[in-house]
Write a protein that binds this DNA or RNA. Structure first.
Length: 423
DNA sequence: TCTGGGGTCCTAGGACCC
DNA sequence: TCTGGGGTCCTAGGACCC
């Protein structure tokens, strides 16, 4: 019988920070988005204070002060590294691990013994990750991904499960769905929840009791899939990790934003460079690109501009210099002089195919094998010496105007900032 | 004053072809 | 002047996820 496990790191970013700041255990902690803008991770103590996910920091300044909430700017280098450690430990316990996000992974538990031994096995996994990384996780196990997610939330909420909850009978499934709010179901978002509430649907069980055909007509194939998954019918399979179909790098800028054309080009060049690296990391090339830049949507008192430009590449590529050049040209074509303050910009690569499928062009004047050898050399230098050691001149000094006032040190990835143990 | 970043999937509607 | 209908492909936008 197919069985899915979902391992979910509890309050992941906060937990990462606490690994190196054990003094903050039991205290309210927050991790902020880029520019220290919004709340993106909360400790249980912070949740208990009523601080909501996603609220802007400036709206909760009073509470931060009053309760002495510890603040951290997001430190993705640290979180990425901790995530790799968690994932590598998890992969010891299964032949098939499917990483879903930075802090979640699906685990194949098919044919792994009876419920009782599985419960023990699950608890062992949870303990092992906590011991090996310091990150607490919750594990849910069920016959579909959607139900595994429900189970993991129970594992998180009730101490009695010791981190692992299994939904493996119809009775348990029914009971779990009765206790579960419909809006918390994986695949049911704000809009669907609103729509359902008009019909008095409050719990996952209410939703599951609806007529399948009606669900399909009201919420399309995706809603219907969620409905079937809640009934225990697996519709989302555990596939091999597919290559990404689009790659996006974008940032918001602090303060007024960027008003200087040259600075904007520099930012775009850096985004394009990051995109190209990600593209090569999954061994793919892209054939289309979007460059965008816009002014603040919250400011109605200043002139607005919205650049959103698609570019089709004659020949697919993953080379940094080529992708930067194309992005900059795209930006220049669409740039208007008008004293605009750009608050956000980015580059998206899409129409992505495997690198070995590149279609040559008889009229292409460049020597592609030479270009590729050069790129490999640059990648190797940057891998050894840190990103951005060798870069294109247009990328400038890579000092984007981004605010990070509460940044933790790079404990795990930078020798200069490694944790000092005091004797 | 201050409002994240990176993805996926689905659908409707227009363009285009015969 | 008359001005169908079906199929496919592409794109923009919405909804969802973390």
């Amino acid at each position: 019988m197919p069985l899915f496990g979902l391992a979910d790191c509890n309050n992941f970013f906060v937990s990462c920070e606490r690994v190196f700041r054990p003094d903050l255990n039991g205290k309210p902690v927050l991790v902020l988005s880029s520019n220290d803008g919004c709340v993106i991770s909360r400790s249980n103590e912070t949740k208990a204070l009523g601080i909501k996910m996603g609220v802007p920091l400036f709206q909760i300044r009073k509470e931060v002060e009053k309760y002495g909430i510890a603040l951290f700017s997001s430190n993705y280098v640290l979180y990425g590294d901790m995530s790799r450690r968690v994932m590598s430990l998890l992969s010891c316990y299964t032949p098939k691990l499917d990483q879903y996000s930075i802090d979640e992974a699906f685990i194949d538990f098919s044919d792994m013994g009876d419920s009782k031994s599985l419960q023990k096995y699950g608890q062992e996994i949870v303990k092992s990750v906590a011991k090996g990384t310091g990150i607490p996780i919750s594990l849910g196990i069920a016959s579909t991904r959607t139900l595994a997610k429900v189970a993991s939330k129970f594992a998180k909420k009730y101490k009695g499960y010791h981190g692992c909850c299994i939904i493996d009978t119809d009775e348990k499934r029914q009971k779990a769905l009765e206790l579960f709010e419909v809006g918390d179901v994986f695949g049911i978002g704000r809009k669907m929840k609103e729509h359902l509430s008009k019909y008095g649907i409050r719990t996952a069980a209410d939703f599951a009791r609806l007529d399948g055909e009606w669900v399909r007509s009201a919420f399309s194939i995706t809603g219907y899939r969620t409905w079937r998954e809640l009934h225990g019918e697996a519709c989302i399979s555990l596939d091999e990790l597919p290559a990404k179909k689009s790659i996006c790098v974008s940032r918001s800028f602090a303060g007024e934003g960027i008003t200087d054309k040259h600075k904007l080009e520099e930012a775009i060049a850096n985004f394009a460079s990051d995109c190209a690296r990600k593209l090569r990391e999954q061994n793919t090339i892209c054939r289309q690109m979007t460059v965008f830049a816009y002014t603040s949507r919250f400011r109605t008192d200043v002139p607005q501009d919205f650049i959103n430009h698609n570019i089709r590449l004659d020949i697919g590529t993953n080379e940094t210099s080529e992708i930067i050049k194309t992005a900059i040209e795209g930006l220049r074509e669409n740039y208007r002089n008008g004293n605009f303050a750009y608050k956000k910009a980015g580059v998206i690569l899409w129409d992505i195919i495997p690198a070995n499928a590149v279609q040559g062009n008889l009229f292409d004047p460049r020597n592609r094998s030479k270009l590729s050898a050069l790129q490999q050399t640059i990648d190797e230098i940057n891998r050894r010496n840190g990103r951005g050691t060798v870069r294109n001149a247009v990328q400038g000094d890579n000092q984007l105007n981004i605010k990070r006032e509460h940044l933790s040190p790079q404990y795990t990835t930078n020798w200069d900032e490694i944790l000092v143990v005091k004797g």
